[in-house]
Write a protein that binds this DNA or RNA. Structure first.
Lengths: 215, 215
DNA sequence: CCGCTGCTCCCCCGCGCGGGGGATCCGCCT
DNA sequence: AGGCGGATCCCCCGCGCGGGGGAGCAGCGG
């Protein structure tokens, strides 16, 4: 009985690499591929894979949403999520969405194959680092403020954070937004209060680390 | 006459994908692979490739430094740099280092092959977006300072920048580094002077945008 | 109608930060 | 021997920033 694998990644090179790795195994076969999450539900329905290798970051419909859709549809396919960093925010969202495991993109072919077999057996695959991070966040959220909560910022506050993360001073932001400096100061204060950052530097760090700002 | 190609990328999957793409062409052959820039000079010397596909972001020695080393050594190999974003800072550094062209990581296999043939013919390969960005920066730099120059920072200054980009205050950094606050202030001032940043926030922005800090 | 939220602007105050100086010690290279 | 860059510590000074208040106005929903 061969293991049926579907590949969902927007980078053709990664798909080729995965296909080469999976295809080199006698008991595995690539039964379908997709470049984003839009047609995943359909793809899985047509090809009934045992394991779906799913990239988190994709245009249009990302891996998180696609995973959620699969789980809601009652699919039997196991989802192995591909991510760049082990402590990425996406990891935890994907966990909540119903992913069965994670693979770092810089994984070796052996690790990829091991990951596929692991989730195919019904086990879950997690990184020690990621689990530790999860525990850390849980402990922090039960006690105090909670998550960064960048989405709890109002549109204006998000705009201000974006400008802050571009390196602008309060005066420059006021100029850009055509408002008074006092107004900017209020927004900055709100951003700091909501994010728990002590100063603008920490807020900027948060903006980049959380993926709020593109790198 | 077959085109000899060498692959330098720290992600095994990307290497596999490129190898599959290149290997599928009858007139191309992968003659060597490396996981970082440390052994590139040696690799090129041994395998004498026509084209080197080089990732910009790698541990230890990155693609920029490796490209610079190749050019300085008078190698005849053409360098095709792999990058994630077309307007990445690395693109311009790589240009200055002597790269012959750029490929986006999300390129299709056809684009990869076309890129290899293009640089092999001695032409250069650039993205319209990248060229426009280059023109924009040139216009801006002729008036002011120039490049970020994060690699011109001393080890201690780099350490300080890393801590700054983690959100630490001067006092916290002094505590962490077991030195006086005045010392930290000196290092911070040096970082700002060398990078052209106006304040610590801009330095942190630079650290993330340039890839100096992992996201 | 009233309350809530978001956006706008204002005051005072303390402190961390950044600019501009200088000084000492060490190790390396010439 | 002398020079030089790196790391360490010190001074004064001005200003932007952040904390803690308050207030008016629009829109939206109970």
């Amino acid at each position: 009985m061969t293991l049926r694998v579907a590949l969902v990644d927007d980078e053709p090179l990664i798909r080729r690499g995965l296909a080469a790795v999976v295809g080199s195994e006698p008991d595995m076969a690539v039964v379908g591929e997709a470049g984003d999450g839009t047609g995943v539900l359909d793809l899985v329905g047509r090809t009934s894979p045992d394991v779906v290798l799913m990239d988190v970051r994709m245009p249009r419909v990302d891996g998180i949403a696609a995973t959620r859709a699969l789980v809601r549809a009652g699919s039997a396919a196991r989802v192995l999520v591909l991510t760049t960093f082990a402590n990425d925010d996406h990891v935890f969202e994907a966990l909540a969405a119903g992913a069965d495991g994670f693979l770092l993109k810089r994984s070796s072919p052996e690790e990829v194959l091991h990951g596929i077999r692991t989730v195919a057996r019904g086990e879950s695959l997690l990184f020690p680092d990621a689990v530790r991070e999860l525990a850390r966040r849980h402990a922090r959220s039960t006690g105090s403020t909670g998550d960064p909560g960048l989405d709890r910022l109002t549109p204006r506050e998000q705009e201000v954070l974006r400008l802050m993360a571009a390196g602008l001073s309060n005066a420059e932001m006021a100029d850009r937004l055509v408002v008074g400096v006092e107004t900017v100061r209020s927004h900055v204060a709100a951003v700091l209060a909501k994010t728990g950052a002590r100063d603008r530097t920490q807020a900027v760090v948060l903006a980049y680390r959380s993926g709020f700002m593109p790198v």
